[in-house]
Design a protein around this nucleic acid. Structure first.
Lengths: 202, 202, 202, 202
DNA sequence: GATGAATGAGGCTTCATTCAT
DNA sequence: TATGAATGAAGCCTCATTCAT
């Protein structure tokens, strides 16, 4: 029955959202499964009907959120052809996600790194897909003679992501009053990378 | 007695080194204090004579290693005046540290992020000092008219560090055969940032 | 409607048979109600329409199987008058049941003992009826002057049952190739008890 | 230090004794580790310094108690040469153990059987040693022409042990007033087996 | 009657930390 | 100063049972 399927999906979604909040507030290890259950309005055991264990819940958040983020990124870049503008839009999009989904961003950036599984065993395919978008922009720019061809797309990809990620983390961690302008930061990072990757003007 | 002081320092050092190895191998949460004690050749309780608790041990590793790293960085840059070359040397130095101290780098990069204390309460002064070196290079470059003055030194600082850190992490996590050339990566990242931060050539 | 009653009985029977198999494979505590339900082809909740709880299911198996076993025993002994031969037939019948109903025997012998309820609260009337058959044989033999009258029928009853039961358990637990001849064992046990209980030949 | 070793042994012994009592009272599954710890006067965690887990505790009780029982059996039989008298003494000894160590006997007989590990994986070497004593008596009796040579020592061994065990279990389970005379039972069982195993008087 | 998603109590075990020696 | 046996808090997860449909 469609009704039951919908209710089931709802419950799963409620657990995910509750987990995002609790993980963001307390951190993965400090978060108690029973707190997540309480916030989701379900019994502790119910969580285990939808997720194998606490870690699977964390990983599922990652997969789920990344799906949305990835789709959003592709949409944001869909109408843009110029590699230079695509880089700029990538940076803007990345920071807009962080700004508009603080809890999710906090979990994705901070808590996920804490999972040994994630870092040492789990292959974050979804993250690679996300990054591959940037590598592809680089390659396209190189093909068009806009970006220098001596740059390794993988190196620039990781460097670019690292730059965005670190700034996002600092923004997330920074407490209110001192919080810097994340939008301005996006422009600057994009600008540095664009100029840095461009072929020398002759 | 100097002898006693030295012996004490030795023991502390042995615990630190043991902790670096164990944290690198198992991760902070999975590492057991008794394993560290065993590897250091001391009793469990002895660790608590030198460190307040397990987390203090992690933080102490950070402080201690960062002191060395920071001193090394300053020495590496001591004889270089040109801001452009200082940026390049910074990148080279950062990666050389990662390459030559795998375990320490792994702990610093991976495990430290996992400590809620570290990320949410602890102010990593030593890290700020390290980064401040780069911010200062930027300011000096701006003052000399080499780097664009519209760039926020804090933004470039985090972006640069993020780029180095992410690449270092990937290098550390990457398993043997596919391991990319970390030295070449250093040159590329430095190059991208230098060009990206430079004033437009007229 | 007779049809409905039959269907009901069928479902109950299917649950019983499924439970016998699952209990035999996994043991009572390791067996999950949902596994039994799956094997029986019913929903978990359905089991609770037929049995009060998991333990009641175990006890019901016992009652049900013992009814059949008891009827079979009586039939096997029906045409035999000589107490000596009745003892022999009892042993043969007991082992034939074990041999031909491995799963049921395994549950009856192994798993039932694990139920505290069974051992400390539950009065296994059916088992007593089964044993009483032997006690009666003893008494009859004593009355006829075949068995020694100084033997306590309760003691011989438990001793005989214990001997059969232990051998059956060993046979059930023994893995294939080394499995001893259960039929030969039946003859030997019967023989020892018959000679042991007989009045001295003068 | 001998002192420390003694204290350690004492603590282990206290845990064993507490576990025997609690297992006997509540059964293995119903017994809580914290109850055992409380009764032993130690912290919960202390138990895990001496035993791998709850099941290991149960198995250790078995091993430990059987060592004592086995030594006692050997001593009880040491001065007896006649196989017939050895059988009688075996039965007497077995029941004396049950009578004098009710809790331990209850655990050994009832709770041990409940452990799947014990029945399906664990090889109770100590029990086999105990039984082997009886098998050896049988063989010796056969060699001397006292017991019939057509009897399989393994069959009589299990039958004898089953008879003793079942009677012991009934005695343990039987509540006070109706409790039968266990010593008289010992004589009867021994008597039945001795006559049952003897060569025909000519 | 039948379903099966949801419940939630309950307990084993780990391991950082302490402290008597 | 060093030891290491002892502590005990704390939480994930299972699974028998219920009940709304």
């Amino acid at each position: 029955m469609a009704e039951a399927a919908r209710r089931r999906a709802d419950k799963r979604e409620r657990i995910i959202e509750a987990a995002v909040d609790v993980f963001a507030e307390r951190g993965f290890h400090q978060a108690r499964v029973s707190d997540i259950a309480k916030r989701a309005g379900v019994a502790d055991g119910t969580i285990y009907l939808y997720f194998k264990n606490k870690e699977d819940l964390l990983l599922s958040i990652f997969e789920e959120k990344m799906d949305v983020v990835l789709a959003g990124l592709r949409e944001a870049l869909a109408s843009i052809d110029d590699p230079v503008e695509r880089v700029r839009s990538f940076a803007r999009y990345h920071f807009s996600q962080v700004r508009d989904n603080r809890s999710a961003a906090e979990v994705l950036q901070v808590e996920l790194r804490l999972s040994n599984k994630f870092l040492k065993e789990y292959r974050p395919e979804k993250l690679w897909e996300y990054l591959e978008v940037f590598a592809e922009i680089t390659r396209e720019g190189q093909a068009r003679g806009i970006f220098r061809s001596d740059l390794d797309p993988f190196v620039t990809m990781w460097a670019f992501f690292g730059a965005l990620d670190e700034l996002a983390m600092q923004w997330v961690l920074s407490r209110r009053p001192n919080r810097f302008e994340i939008d301005a930061a996006a422009e600057q990072v994009a600008d540095v990378f664009i100029r840095g990757m461009r072929v020398d003007p002759t």
